[in-house]
Write a protein that binds this DNA or RNA. Sequence first.
DNA 1: CTCTTATTGATAATTATTATTAATAGATAT
DNA 2: ATATCTATTAATAATAATTATCAATAAGAG
Lengths: 136, 136
Amino acid sequence: MKILEHLKSVKTHPTAEMVYNVVKKDIPSITLATVYRNLNCLSEDGKIVKLEINGEFRFDADMGKHQHCVCKKCGKILDVFQKEISEYALKKIKSTDFVPSGVQVIFYGNCKHENKRAKNNKRPEIVKDNSGVKKR
Amino acid sequence: MKILEHLKSVKTHPTAEMVYNVVKKDIPSITLATVYRNLNCLSEDGKIVKLEINGEFRFDADMGKHQHCVCKKCGKILDVFQKEISEYALKKIKSTDFVPSGVQVIFYGNCKHENKRAKNNKRPEIVKDNSGVKKR
DNA sequence: CTCTTATTGATAATTATTATTAATAGATAT
DNA sequence: ATATCTATTAATAATAATTATCAATAAGAG
């Protein structure tokens, strides 16, 4: 409940760990494994969407048809609300011997901020907030 | 070279490890890390596409605009060749303050085989060939 | 043929995610 | 209320995919 509530209250696309860090303020005893378990159940039940971006799972409680943009430079994830895109894709696919239950549309490119940098001939900014970029 | 060659010769969407297992027949000294390194370079150079499906990276040397279907039951990945889908998506997105360099369209659902099973009221088959499904 | 630079092999490290299991909480019946 | 059954959690270990490191090798320039 708290997990779903939090996801709904937010327009970012947090990882399990990010969710964990917030929810544990409310439920201090909660553990990361529990967050993972619930996020997976929620996504299996179709209450949330599980995305795979930059080598990690991201979660989104917005169940309306929308799309995502991922900046190749800073890793930021932006929402796009053009349900026609998803609808068009689903319409076109009907023919095949595959029954789709949903589409995920992800645009890869550069966000505004990173484009401005490029015009000024600056090399990509060192990302301070590296949430969203996988580092091992 | 051998890695790219192999990827081009195949219509599956192999993981790094799958590529490794094939390429090492030609170059027995090659190591998995080298395969990863080269696959990542190739994808950064736009020679191949790096997909994220079921928690692992998949690689595809087909650079034509096409889409993918992922079966939720058996994990199989199928190609869809409807470049209009990608084109439509890219056209619609122009407006936003994000400069896309490409789109990835992934349909999730059930493939023919798994659908037949469903009609016969059989529970999902135990997947013998679990390549394509992440298991930890 | 030597020197310089880039790539590889071998291997260790990292880390995101899942599995395990005993303990706890919730629900139900008594 | 209390006992009983079931589902969920916390704590923690395990797994496995991917990346980092670095000495050794290969490739290319002069």
